[in-house]
Simulated scan of single mutants.
Amino acid sequence: MAPMASRGTLVLRAMIRSPETIGGLVLLTALVLLALVGPSISPWAYDQKDFTALLSPPTAEHWFGTSQIGADLFAQTVRGMQKSLLIGLLVAVISTALAAVVGAFAGYFGGWADRMLMWGVDLLLVLPGFLIISILSPRLRGSGFVVLVLLLAVFGWMLTARIVRGLTVSLREREFVQAARYMGISGPRIVLRHIIPNLSSFLIIDGALNVSGAIIGEAGLSFFGFGVQPPDVSLGTVIAAGAPAAIPHPWLFVFPAGVLILIVLSVNLIGDGLRDALEGRS
């Protein structure tokens, strides 16, 4: 009799059978590789200017063309990819972890702990996160992109926390949780070692989809001047810099915006594949 395949193997097989998931993985891998090796193969640095080629279309010397001030658009797009991918990944990890801890503790302990934690979640839900980040970001210039990551994460976990709370309420009366309780294991340890691991499928899916949401959020803030600040660049700042002249010079918009669309598309395809595979094998 053949040994039973592990759950991870079953999930992997389900993902491999999905053309959309494979396409998303291939596309995201190619984009990440481009972000990593792009600076080494580009003849120009992202902060270097070529004043002899202002608003130049794509050429053999400037692969994506140049901007109004002679910046190489390929180098800036690659640098923007690095920053946007890093910010999206960090925001997704922090916000998903925060949602898992707050939602699981609220759902498991109930009572006043549940009321206080959910009151905080409801308060953050009604606050205009984009507006607050827009107000705070100019006052925190010079602090680096870490502050932007924390601000985006703080306003990106509340809905997930509510879902985690509801799932935890249904899990806390399950046999394995009751057995752990009868063995004298403390409540926080039960939450961290039994409740949250049993929600891993949902959290993995949510974290994957949060990456694309965080990238779009950062790009939007940077487009309006509230995100990544010069001299550094992200995809949002590159798109914003080229937007005024994008009609007569379309390469200023097409290349950075196209890369942004491809990143979000690939992450969403992978997230959908994870959801189908994990939920189908749950």
Rank of each mutant, 00 (worst) to 15 (best):
R189L: 04
P248V: 10
G271D: 04
P58H: 02
V177S: 07
R165E: 05
T160D: 10
A246F: 07
F74Q: 04
V32A: 05
V259L: 08
G8I: 13
S134E: 09
G23W: 14
G156C: 12
G24K: 06
I196P: 02
L151N: 07
D122F: 09
A104I: 07
R7P: 15
G166P: 06
L34Q: 08
A99Y: 04
A104K: 09
I163N: 09
I16A: 13
P250A: 07
S42A: 12
L85T: 11
G207F: 10
L252Q: 11
I216C: 01
V121L: 10
K49G: 15
L27D: 08
F64Q: 06
L167V: 12
Y46P: 11
L262Y: 08
Y46G: 10
G144D: 13
D47F: 00
L252T: 06
P39H: 01
G236H: 00
I133Q: 04
A75E: 03
G187Q: 01
L85P: 01
F109M: 04
L31G: 01
S266H: 10
G129E: 12
A219Q: 02
E173D: 12
I263K: 01
H194S: 06
F105T: 00
Y46L: 04
A180P: 00
L274Y: 01
I94N: 08
T168A: 07
L90T: 15
R172N: 07
Q229P: 08
L152Q: 04
Y182T: 13
V267R: 00
A104C: 10
K49N: 15
R281K: 15
E61F: 09
F202A: 05
A2C: 12
I185F: 05
A60D: 11
A97N: 08
L33V: 12
A100I: 05
I16Y: 14
L34P: 02
I16N: 15
Q68N: 14
A245L: 12
